[in-house]
């Protein structure tokens, strides 16, 4: 019986020849859609590559934007680029520790059960929340007089727009990805590895710190990079909570704190301003900024790939 099957399979060149028509149509459709999306992704990359290379000048990276009429007078995007870096660092500085802590709690402790379940759905909800909703909520929050020290005050009114405010809300955008990825990493660790540590007289906390988190480190890094990608790609929160003011507008002359309490911009805000839909009227510079942002995001994705690939070999139990 089996020899007959192999013989007939060998007679046909293609392995799909014996498939039913619907299966073959499905396969064709899957291929078609796959290629379509590859083409779309490729088109985006190629478009910005061409536009970016055409308009990107080194000078753009080191000069600040200036409001102006013609392309020649609008300067570069130094401040938005720095803003992206600052906002990414600040948001992830909040999102990573909090996210890892939540993931450890959900995965390793999970008590009280009801609270864990509520937290779980809250985080899922946050992941599905449109950023602009978060931004609006953040604005009402940071306009409270009690939080006035985090932004600027003018004539007794708290503006609520600052790097602090934007980073706090953007951390919520990155948080779900950190939590999900870390949890996945923790759950992939076989139960006997935990037990091996307990069986040597180690507490749950010691086990988590010395065994589980190091083992889940690749997942933490992956989640963080994905979260960072989401954070630096966000526009709504930047416009509402960072002000979208093209250049940094420090709250006062205190070196670092003044800038962080003041308003600013990121590459996404800059692109919005300079896009054909915005007020800036420097379209080519929007393309150049988009190209830079795309390079950053691509580099992050590449980093994720490298980490995942390396960790698959490094941390693996049978």
């Amino acid at each position: 019986m089996s020899t007959a099957i192999t013989a007939s399979a060998r007679r046909h060149e293609r392995p799909t020849a014996s498939w039913r028509l619907t299966d073959r149509l499905g396969l064709g459709l899957a291929w078609l859609l796959g290629l379509l999306f590859c083409a779309i992704a490729g088109a985006i990359v190629v478009f910005f590559l061409i536009e970016g290379v055409r308009y990107l000048r080194p000078a753009l990276l080191v000069t600040n934007p200036v409001a102006g009429v013609s392309q020649g007078e609008t300067g570069g995007f130094l401040d938005p680029l720095l803003g992206t870096v600052i906002i990414g660092a600040m948001a992830m500085a909040i999102a990573i520790p909090v996210g890892v802590a939540i993931a450890v709690w959900l995965s390793e402790f999970g008590r009280p059960t009801l609270m864990a379940r509520v937290a779980e759905s809250a985080i899922e909800m946050m992941a599905g929340e449109p950023a602009v909703v978060l931004a609006l909520f953040g604005l009402t929050l940071f306009e409270l007089p009690a939080l006035g020290f985090l932004s600027q005050t003018s004539h007794g009114v708290v503006l609520g727009q600052s790097f602090f405010a934007a980073a706090a809300l953007l951390s919520l955008v990155g948080l779900p990805l950190v939590v999900a990825s870390t949890r996945e990493g923790l759950q992939a660790i076989p139960a006997h590895v935990r037990e091996a540590s307990y069986a040597l007289g180690k507490t749950k906390i010691a086990t988590t710190r010395r065994v589980l988190l190091p083992a889940a480190r690749p997942s933490v890094i992956t989640g963080s990079m994905l979260g960072l990608g989401r954070v630096i790609g966000d526009t709504a929160i930047v416009l509402l909570l960072l002000g979208g003011t093209l250049t940094f507008q420090p709250a006062n002359s205190t070196p670092v704190l003044g800038v962080l309490r003041g308003t600013g911009d990121t590459l996404t805000g800059y692109m919005y301003y300079n896009s054909p839909a915005g007020d800036g009227n420097s379209h080519s510079k929007a393309y150049a900024a988009a190209f830079v942002l795309m390079l950053i995001v691509l580099a992050l994705n590449l980093g994720v790939d490298v980490v995942v690939r390396r960790s698959r070999r490094a941390v693996r139990w049978s």
Partner: peptide, 20 residues
């Protein structure tokens, strides 16, 4: 329990060295 487990230690079916 932790004191007991330091005096009665265990080796498992699957080798499970820690990632260090």
């Amino acid at each position: 329990a932790t004191a007991l487990r330091r005096r009665v230690t265990m080796v498992f079916q699957q080798p499970n060295p820690f990632p260090m």
